[in-house]
């Protein structure tokens, strides 16, 4: 995991992504004090993670295993590393990166918008919104790494993850879990940030993403533990 994090830190794609996110936060925070209300500004900032920055998450996570398909057997799994250790380290390092960046950008921005922005923000609403978007990103990252174990080609894993993520509305409708639809959640963010929500619904969303993430990770681990290298 440590080696993977060092490798990610050296990646220019990751650095550029971090820079763009920081730039967006720098632009968003002052806007909350003038032409935009604080809930809309913070909702807009949070919404970019599942809608726009998801593309960077997919790019950085879909190659976690598939891009190393030759190296992993020669240099890692032929040594004293179990399949579980390897795949869990891959998922963990991606989650640390994604959640680390997410919190690094949103926590200071949320504080500044709440402190200086125009309009009411509920503290609990901010916590719920950050938690739910964070869990959504956990699911997306897990999904990307899982597909990276299924496919030997990074591009296929990338397109697969992208397809599943952008068809999430249809998929959630198919399984009758519309409350997990990313678009519906993003639409509800301004209201949630103002405290206009039902706590049980928020718990349900959080639990739904957690269950989906654990399921995806379990499938990935199970598949990878039996995969021929």
């Amino acid at each position: 995991m440590q080696a993977d994090l060092v490798s990610l830190a050296r990646s220019w794609a990751v650095r550029i992504w971090l820079g763009l996110m920081a730039l967006q936060a720098i632009v968003t925070v002052p806007s909350s004090t003038s032409d935009s209300t604080a809930p809309d500004a913070l909702a807009g900032l949070l919404a970019t993670f599942p809608l726009i920055w998801s593309l960077f998450i997919i790019i950085n996570s879909s190659g976690a295993v598939s891009s190393e398909s030759g190296v992993v057997a020669d240099s890692i799994l032929s040594k004293s590393v179990t399949r579980y250790e390897y795949i869990l380290a891959k998922i963990a390092s991606r989650l640390v990166m994604v959640l680390g960046f997410f919190l690094l950008i949103t926590l200071p921005a949320a504080y500044l918008i709440a402190r200086y922005g125009i309009g009411e923000l509920a503290r609990d609403g901010i916590v719920w919104s950050i938690l739910i978007i964070g869990m959504m990103l956990v699911l997306l990252t897990s999904l990307a790494v899982a597909l990276s174990t299924l496919f030997n080609r990074t591009m296929v894993a990338m397109i697969g993850t992208w397809g599943v993520w952008y068809a999430a509305g249809a998929i959630t409708a198919l399984f009758r879990v519309e409350f997990l639809s990313p678009l519906d959640i993003v639409d509800a963010l301004p209201a949630t940030l103002q405290g206009d929500y039902v706590a049980s619904d928020q718990w349900r969303i959080l639990a739904g993403f957690a269950v989906a993430s654990v399921t995806v990770i379990s499938i990935a681990v199970l598949h990878f533990s039996r995969k021929d290298l």
Binding site: G70, D74, S75, K79
Partner: peptide, 14 residues
């Protein structure tokens, strides 16, 4: 595997 040293054909490294 801790007791084995493996050299693959045309080894690939990070």
């Amino acid at each position: 595997r801790r007791r084995i040293g493996f050299l693959p054909t045309y080894p690939r490294f990070p």
